[in-house]
Design a protein around this nucleic acid. Structure first.
Lengths: 141, 141
DNA sequence: CTGTATCCTAGTTGATACTG
DNA sequence: CAGTATCAACTAGGATACAG
């Protein structure tokens, strides 16, 4: 994430507490909205999985990104990582209660998107097929 | 967004309809989670504003990014752009009903973050202050 | 098996300057 | 005022090779 640090907001005179919250909100939102997190969480929602299984089920992810995504989720306490001291190694990832809770909160947004995806697609098409017309202006008097 | 196009999922044999939905969900999530959209929507939630006003109220955003963010939101039908044919030009941006609706859906997530931010911060601290211990392994038998 | 290290490219952002 | 154009960082992501 390239996201601005609190300093940017702070220097505008915003209260520190509020800054921290805004920052964290965006941080979480950004993580959920990033390229792989949502898919990973969704896949994990059906049950614990080991690294390789995740690598297969999260379509198209690279080892690098999977590892990175899982570490971020683990760090936030959304996912547990359990390594069994065997050889070859076995590591299982699972959603924590907090992770499941987030997953449910995200579901709200997912449902919103589902129920409004028609509108969005329509709006985009309309917008894209208006090359000349540009944005109309209607003087309100 | 660098996000993968449907092809990546499709080539794994996922149903086209589902792919499109997943893609759009992540697309919307990514937009909401990006560096500026959430702030912009939040600011617009209190009422219509013109370009310069937004530029001032969305702390730290550049003209380029503001313009870009607003166009994306307008394209999706989340924001209206009204240009008054005056000189100097005046352009007002406002949330559409769809935009407000999204804003409310996002609020759910925002509240989740607010009520769990303590946990998250705690988890991060704990994770970061465990340099040696690494992830513990508990053989279950 | 489960990662990490390295390299490389493509996309994203910010600063700056300029236009209608 | 409300943007767009251009350029220079910067970053994220994939591929590959390697390690524990």
């Amino acid at each position: 994430m390239t996201h601005l640090r609190g300093a940017d907001l702070a220097q505008r005179g915003v209260a520190p507490d509020c800054v921290q919250t805004i920052e964290l909100v965006r941080d979480v939102l950004a993580r959920v909205g990033d390229k792989w997190t949502l898919l990973t969480i969704t896949v994990l929602a059906s049950g614990p999985l080991r690294f390789t299984a995740l690598h297969e089920q999260v379509a198209g992810i690279s080892q690098r990104m999977l590892s990175q995504t899982l570490r971020a989720l683990t760090r936030d306490g959304l996912v547990t990582r359990t390594a069994y001291p065997e050889v070859p190694p076995r590591v299982e990832y699972a959603l924590t209660p907090l992770g499941r809770s987030l997953s449910e909160a995200v579901d709200g947004l997912v449902h919103w998107v589902r129920s409004h995806q028609g509108d969005i697609v329509r709006n985009r098409d309309e917008f894209d097929q208006t090359p000349a017309a540009k944005t109309a202006a209607s003087p309100h008097a």
